[in-house]
């Protein structure tokens, strides 16, 4: 059994890692919001999704969080009529990625909020540790 405060720091760190992966995926989605396929009629960039899973770390008996899977969003692509576009099919329609800016922004905000909560826990745990160390300090 590891020290519970050390375990607490480790858990919060796993949360930070998971949320930053989520932010990375949001960044990928936003950057590729207009990425079309290379050839006429081909599929464009597909939106990526992140799922988290609870992972029990056997060595320290703590429930960490890990990124379970980075999957693809199966919702339909947007279609626009742009006959001059290099990726347009024979009828002049271009398939655009299934990315909604508002959804990505909401996801980013939530990732941010969860990241902050994990940071708060690290701060609080550090305070607990320093309060314990303060017991050793000479009261003068």
């Amino acid at each position: 059994m590891v020290d519970p405060l050390q375990a607490s720091l480790r858990i919060a760190a796993s949360g930070l890692e998971a949320q930053s992966t989520r932010l990375r995926v949001v960044a990928e989605n936003l950057a590729n919001a207009q990425s079309t396929g290379p050839t006429p009629g081909s599929d464009p960039y597909t939106r990526k999704t992140v799922t988290f899973a609870n992972a029990l770390d056997r060595a320290s008996e703590t429930n960490l969080v890990k990124v379970d899977d980075i999957g693809l969003d199966r919702s339909p692509f947007r279609v626009e009529y742009q006959p001059g576009h290099p990726a347009a099919d024979e009828k002049g329609y271009v398939k655009l990625p299934n990315i909604d800016m508002a959804v990505e922004m909401a996801d980013m905000r939530e990732a941010n909020r969860s990241y902050e909560a994990n940071l708060q826990i690290i701060k609080r745990t550090r305070e607990l540790l320093s309060m314990t160390i303060d017991l050793l300090r000479n009261p003068g």
Binding site: S14, A18, F52
Partner: peptide, 13 residues
């Protein structure tokens, strides 16, 4: 504290 940090880390699981 460990239990709480586990909960917060899994806030989106």
């Amino acid at each position: 504290q460990t239990a709480i940090s586990g909960n917060i880390a899994n806030a989106n699981t």
